[in-house]
Design a protein around this nucleic acid. Structure first.
Lengths: 150, 150
DNA sequence: TATTTTACGATCGATCCCATCCATGGCAGA
DNA sequence: TCTGCCATGGATGGGATCGATCGTAAAATA
């Protein structure tokens, strides 16, 4: 993993539909070694997946919320149960256990306020062991990238 | 945009490297109409991009931080300047203006604590108009998806 | 220092899968 | 009846994929 690999990864993070020739030109190699490097990065699972990113306005997910969740106690059993339930809810796009004033940060995508209301009441708050939920709604996404800076 | 389109999008959100035939099978159509639907979704920019997702451990981004930023005043000038500066910092993967007790939520990816320290002192806190920064470090990502639930 | 080995990369060529596009025909609903 | 899908089949070409050969520079070794 050297500078050229990082350049390749930067390109693939931006646009994975480029063909090998284009990427080769941008990183200063010919096609074959570029191809071999990409294959190696895929096999080594440095590249986790190739995915399509959608325009959330166009698919009707008009509301993104970040929920700060606190559990009632710091018990492994409670935490494990919480994590299991989170994985079953597809409206939760991300769930990170964090340090600080709360325990988990969730990113939720729903159609609208009604959808959020239902999500909180019917899905999230019924999970055992949740003490508090503080929500911030996204008003504007200044930047929303999946690319790491390499 | 109907149920079949949504199924196609779900597939492409999971794995964009599938060929048309595989997707066609999963959504219950033949190759041609599947292909045409995908093209239409690309041209209508419902699909924003195809990208590679990386394993952050394998590329050495060992630290993810969420920073809650408050600006000193609610002035458009300050906010515009802040947004402009944010776009120039590639370690900031996401920046969302939010409702609630703070103004902006930033997602930062760095190598380690030293990198975070430098980022805060040399890059973030020098931006004009920042009042407070509260940071939560990610201890464990229970779920980290880019897929919307369609 | 001289020589050898190793580890890239460049170039070329062959193969073949699959995206891409077209044309035709069937079928259901307006 | 007409319109809008879909299915099927076929033609084409681009690009992924792989192998072989050669060149080169740095590192290892005598």
């Amino acid at each position: 993993m050297d500078g050229i690999d990082r350049k390749i990864l930067m390109q693939l993070q931006e646009n994975a539909k480029q063909n090998t020739k284009e990427i080769a030109g941008k990183v200063g190699l010919s096609v074959t070694p570029t191809y071999e490097r990409i294959k190696k990065l895929e096999q080594g699972e440095v590249i986790r997946a190739y995915v399509a990113l959608l325009d959330r306005a166009k698919i009707g997910k008009k509301l993104i919320a970040y929920c700060q969740v606190t559990l009632t106690k710091q018990q492994k059993k409670l935490a494990d149960n919480f994590k299991r339930e989170v994985l079953l809810l597809p409206d939760i796009m991300e769930c990170h256990q964090v340090s600080g004033n709360f325990d988990y940060l969730l990113k939720i995508a729903v159609d609208d306020i009604a959808g959020f209301h239902e999500f909180i009441n019917e899905r999230l708050s019924i999970i055992n062991g949740i003490a508090t939920i503080h929500t911030s709604f996204v008003l504007d996404s200044v930047k929303d990238s999946t690319a790491y800076n390499l």
